Amino acid sequence: MKKVSLGIKTLAQPSPVWLVGSYDQAGQPNLATIAWGGICCSKPPCVAISLRPATYTHDSIIQRGAFTVNVATEPFARQADFCGMASGRDGDKFAAAGLTAVKSDLIDAPYVEEFPLIVECRLQQTVEVGGHTQFIGEIVDVKADPAVLSESGVPDIEKVRPMIFTPVIRTYHGAGEYLGQAFSIGKEIG
């Protein structure tokens, strides 16, 4: 039995730190740091992100029908934090953060050149959930820097070094140490 009730809070932790790339109505690339997101389907491969309608990125995703998920990494913690505090309404967040916008050749959204892992998504559907809109994007490609790939050709978390976020207390952390192989270490139990 748990000893302390913490009440109704967004404490399902950790959350990813993702920078969502989109173009505004004028074609200006923009970034929004989000923590409400994750994989939501494997066939077809999809991710879900949630944004408040008041955000600048919200309408851009609807108008363009696309977005990128740029996995924030430990070396870019300050830039990720900045892009979550500043608004694209007030200026170019790519330039202010010293990041390079790259136009996707598959979807109508930019990605961050400096980030080692990018997910390009075509908007599949939106779902209104309380004060947020959940955007479900079908993954049309994943781009990775070769330096972060394992010998088998998939991203290695220790090379990617993704950031994670702790809701409510609002802290960033690295992903942590290796604990074991999924769908394997549990076999030791029975």
Rank of each mutant, 00 (worst) to 15 (best):
A48V: 13
V47Y: 15
S60R: 09
D145W: 04
W18H: 12
T166L: 14
L31D: 05
G21H: 03
T126D: 10
C41K: 12
P14Q: 03
D90G: 05
L6E: 07
W18G: 08
H173T: 13
P16C: 04
Q28M: 13
I164A: 14
V127S: 10
G65P: 06
G84I: 10
G21E: 03
D156M: 06
L51H: 06
Q25T: 12
G131L: 08
G88K: 08
Y178Q: 05
A147W: 08
Y178E: 05
A97M: 06
L123G: 04
D59Q: 15
E138R: 15
N70E: 02
I34E: 08
T10P: 10
G137D: 07
V168L: 14
P44G: 02
K3A: 11
P45L: 14
G131N: 13
E114M: 01
I139F: 01
A35Y: 08
L106R: 15
S15W: 11
E114A: 06
Q25L: 12
I61W: 01
V112Y: 00
K103Q: 13
I157C: 03
M85N: 11
A32F: 11
T133C: 12
T100W: 01
S60H: 14
K93I: 09
S22R: 01
I118M: 00
D105C: 11
P162H: 00
H132I: 07
V142Y: 01
A182K: 00
Q124M: 12
D92I: 10
G130D: 12
A109Y: 02
A101D: 04
A72D: 08
W18E: 10
L51N: 08
S60N: 15
I8M: 12
I185P: 00
A32K: 11
T55S: 04
P53S: 05
M85A: 13
E158P: 05
I49G: 07
P167W: 06
V129D: 11
V4K: 15
V47M: 15
P162D: 02
T166P: 06
G190V: 10
N30F: 03
D145A: 03
T126F: 09
Q134W: 07
G84W: 07
Y178A: 03
Q63H: 14
D92Y: 07
I118L: 00
G91M: 06
A97K: 04
V129M: 15
F165H: 15
F82G: 08
S22I: 08
V140F: 01
D81N: 13
P53R: 01
Q134S: 13
D92R: 04
K2F: 11
S50P: 06
G186S: 01
S50C: 15
V148H: 12
H58W: 15
S104Y: 03
A26G: 10
L6M: 12
Q25M: 10
S15N: 14
A96Q: 14
F135M: 04
G98F: 01
F165D: 07
G37W: 01
P14D: 00
V119R: 03
C83E: 05
R170A: 14
A26W: 12
V154R: 13
G174N: 14
Q124T: 08
I49H: 03
V102F: 00
P16H: 02
D59E: 15
L51Q: 11
L19S: 08
E120V: 09
A144M: 03
D92K: 04
N30Y: 04
G180M: 00
L11Q: 10
L123K: 02
W36K: 06
Y56C: 04
